[in-house]
């Protein structure tokens, strides 16, 4: 397969949540797995849903993800001076009835509080089970799925996403194939970990003002990484005006438009049966649209190097941090 890149990584992302990433990912995975050796990765560790879309309720491998620390205050030593609460940059230290406590759903375990505490009242729980990596070696559709889930309230879900992607690469070994990554909503650490190192991004949008706004933000992120993008418009018929605005943006930004998926009442129905749309309703309009999108995608994958050259971002826009030096001099 895959002309010049032996292990291809394609990410499905959208910025806005709930526009249909997992619906598209589950059906695309089934179609692409017929042509390529494919591994699907659920990179939304804070709200992993791809396994549900694929009807998986049992795993072959469950590995704990051990990461981070949580601070605790020894009430016998604490003098309730409040220095720790002032120093914490995460707002993790709360005061209740004049007494200080660490909110374990917020604490990242960075040690800052322990350095400012004058009476050494802070201790740490270490080796926290901050999440899990799950592997289904063979879904009923034939391909493996690697999923990740962060323990609610834990930080650094991006690191867990990187681990999940590495797990998929390990399973792939030296084989040629395609890793299809279903990213989280947003543009933060999870999404950065998802798209770092990818060869292409499939952007999913719906024709609404919010989705257009978020599409621009996620696309800017892809441009920072120099990754070329494709576009799918889901629920395409809900607003012609915003569909046109999205297409206009794609044309201007050299994003390869793969096609529309119409609003289809069978989509929520299929989600409720825990079957990918393509399996639950193979002849419904949205399924037909996804098949057309998959055909286009196969052509792209088979000529990925050429495609990448043609669709590289129009302008290279590396990420540049904005820094304020001591003394308030802003440096760009």
């Amino acid at each position: 397969m895959v002309s010049s890149i032996s292990q291809l990584e394609i990410v499905i992302a959208s910025g806005k949540g709930g526009v249909g990433k997992s619906t598209l990912a589950s059906s695309l995975a089934i179609l692409l797995a017929k042509k390529y050796y494919l591994i699907a990765v659920d990179a939304d560790a804070e709200a992993p849903n791809l396994h549900i879309a694929l009807g998986i309720d049992e795993w072959d491998i469950v590995e704990p993800y051990i990461e981070g620390r949580i601070a605790y205050i020894n009430r016998d030593k604490c003098t309730d001076c409040g220095l720790c609460a002032d120093a914490c940059q995460f707002g993790a230290i709360e005061v209740r009835n004049g007494k200080y406590y660490v909110n374990k759903w917020i604490c990242e375990g960075c040690y800052t509080c322990s350095f400012v505490c004058p009476v050494k009242a802070i201790f740490f729980e270490r080796d926290i089970v901050a999440g899990h990596i799950y592997v289904k070696e063979k879904t009923i559709y034939g391909f493996p799925l690697v999923s990740s889930e962060i323990t609610p309230g834990r930080p650094n879900s991006g690191k867990l996403v990187t681990e999940a992607k590495n797990k998929a690469k390990k399973i792939m070994g030296s084989k040629k194939g395609l890793i299809l990554v279903d990213a989280a909503a947003g543009i933060g650490c999870q999404v950065i970990s998802s798209i770092a190192g990818a060869h292409a991004v499939i952007l999913v949008a719906e024709p609404t003002p919010s989705s257009l706004n978020d599409l621009k933000r996620i696309h800017k992120l892809a441009k920072h990484f120099g990754i070329p993008s494709m576009l799918v418009i889901n629920k395409a018929d809900i607003s012609e005006k915003y569909r046109e605005k999205i297409l206009e943006y794609a044309r201007r930004e050299n994003i390869d438009y793969l096609g529309d998926i119409p609003y289809d009442e069978n989509v929520p129905r299929s989600i409720n049966t825990m079957k990918p749309l393509l399996e639950a309703y193979p002849d419904t309009e949205a399924s037909k649209a996804i098949r057309r999108i998959a055909e286009k995608l196969v052509k792209i994958i088979d000529n990925i190097s050429e495609w990448r050259l043609k669709h590289l971002p129009a302008k290279i826009e590396p990420f540049i941090p904005i820094i304020i030096k001591p003394g308030n001099n802003i440096v760009k």
């Binding site: 949540g17 804070e46 709200a47 995460f90 707002g91 709360e94 909110n103 759903w105 917020i106 604490c107 990242e108 962060i150 609610p152 309230g153 834990r154 930080p155 879900s157 989280a184 909503a185 947003g186 933060g188 999870q190």
Partner: peptide, 15 residues
């Protein structure tokens, strides 16, 4: 808040 269940959500939930 945003989507998700990480500590960026808990910060909005405390107190």
């Amino acid at each position: 808040t945003g989507a998700g269940t990480g500590n960026q959500i808990s910060i909005a939930l405390k107190n």
